[in-house]
Amino acid sequence: MQASSKVLPSQRVKVSRGEIHVIKERCKQCNLCIDFCPTQVLRESDEANEKGYHVPELVEEPEKGNTCVACGFCQVICPEYAIWIEARRDE
């Protein structure tokens, strides 16, 4: 991902950006979304839900090229239907 953000002219090619939603009470901390995220922008947060599971959070580093690109893989791999992506339309 880092290479592509440097090579592609940013005015012409727009990398899609996503917004992450998590339904906290459904999460069971299996970490599949974190392990399988292709751009590595998810991380286990300190915040726990009512059952004590730590829900994922988004950590983006735009200067390194690590941003959510709205691929939606966390959404389709989540066994709990707890996380989903909304592609940002603006920018």
């Binding site: 939603h21 339904i23 009470e25 459904r26 069971k28 901390q29 299996c30 599949l32 599971y53 959404q75 989540c78 066994p79 709990e80 239907y81 707890a82 989903w84």
Partner: peptide, 23 residues
Amino acid sequence: HPIDKWLRSERMPHIWCPGCGIG
């Protein structure tokens, strides 16, 4: 969640274990 129109959301979270492949 986009799947919620196919789910009975009031029964979520389900009983399957963390990391189960059924979901």
